[in-house]
């Protein structure tokens, strides 16, 4: 176990020295704050519009028909979750690639294996080192989110909200580690290591962007700017009644979305943070019960990825295919 910790420390130090990862971390910090700034400005606009309307109604001697906009601070993190889906996955891919490519390029993996270090310890060390870095990055995102909500959004989080934020960050950790393990596996398997990076990006494109986009595009409500059901002035029960006639279509659309792990991560995160409005008033335990499939799939795939990395590494009898990274 000491060997694994030594490898983990070395991994962590190597990552901190990497300019590329520094660029990504800075980028994530900037977009986290940007996203909270935009969301809070949109919310403040809604409040000021509501107040203007309220004053107008008062002047006319009428009472307001709708409720005042209510701030649920965690709702302002929608953009942050979107960015973790996209950039977080890129971070996982790069870490998975770099951890193997540096060993292959400098031909050090076989050298390590001549020492009293088992293959399992190498995998554990690499996963621990990179995992620690991802956890630290997400902790940074959490701190930036907390401060952003406080300073830019003017909203302090209570204990339950902090717990929800923590849970989403934990889920984000598992989500990013899925992409880490995928690229780790590809980099170990492929003879030409740069192909592993390209293929990981192609998978990322399909899973993170294309599949959710196709599902979203097929949603009948998304066919009209502003929403089809909104334009038809339908209530939610009426909408449900209409869509009951299109169960097969909706099942197909949902199946396309469910092929993407990103969508499972998004559904669980949006529910926990209350970005999906129906979950705002639901206790956290009930949200977890209702979202357990999505949560289990993210953690399940994360565990399967790690297991596959360990199995692949320990089964390789000969040395690694050393190429020039071309």
């Amino acid at each position: 176990m000491n060997n694994a910790l030594t490898i983990a420390k070395k991994e962590f130090r190597d990552i901190l020295k990497s300019r590329l990862l520094l660029i990504i971390i800075l980028f994530m910090a900037v977009i986290t704050v940007t996203s909270i700034l935009v969301s809070s400005q949109v919310f403040q606009s809604q409040v000021s519009q509501y107040n203007e309307l309220l004053n107008l109604l008062k002047e006319l001697g009428k009472a307001p028909a709708g409720p005042a906009p209510e701030l649920f601070p965690l709702n302002l993190l929608r953009g942050v979750i979107d960015y973790i889906e996209i950039i977080g996955a890129v971070l996982g891919i790069l870490l998975g690639y770099l951890t193997i490519s540096k060993e292959k390029n400098s031909k050090t993996l076989n050298l390590i294996l001549t020492r009293p270090v088992s293959r399992t310890e190498i995998v554990i060390g690499k996963v621990l080192g990179n995992g620690a870095f991802i956890a630290l990055t997400l902790l940074g995102v959490g701190v930036f989110s907390y401060l952003g909500l406080l300073v830019v959004g003017g909203a302090a989080l209570n204990q339950i909200e902090l717990l929800k934020l923590g849970l989403v960050l934990l889920l984000s950790f598992a989500y990013i580690m899925i992409f880490f393990s995928l690229t780790f596996l590809l980099s170990l398997r492929m003879k030409t290591i740069s192909h592993a990076l390209m293929i990981a990006f192609v998978i990322w494109l399909a899973v993170v962007l294309i599949l959710p986009q196709v599902g979203d595009t097929m949603d009948p409500d998304n066919q009209v700017p502003g929403g089809f059901f909104n334009s038809m002035h339908l209530t939610k029960p009426q909408e449900t009644q209409v869509m009951a006639n299109f169960k097969n279509y909706e099942t197909m659309r949902n199946s396309i979305e469910q092929m993407s792990i990103t969508k499972h991560y998004e559904r669980a995160s949006f529910a926990i943070l209350g970005i999906k409005e129906e979950f705002n008033a639901v206790p956290l335990a009930d949200i977890i019960v209702r979202q357990w499939v999505n949560i289990a799939l993210v953690f399940g795939l994360f565990a399967a990825g790690l297991f596959a990395c360990g199995m692949l590494m320990s089964r390789r009898r000969r040395g690694y295919a050393f190429d020039s990274g071309t």
Partner: peptide, 28 residues
């Protein structure tokens, strides 16, 4: 697109353009 039009990142993938309103916010 998020900065200029208050579009969430994943909303940028929707081919049906969304109506966004930055008028009431001087910053946006």
């Amino acid at each position: 697109p998020e900065l200029t039009s208050a579009l969430y990142p994943t909303a940028s993938l929707n081919p049906t353009s969304l109506q966004t309103d930055v008028m009431p916010s001087p910053v946006l």
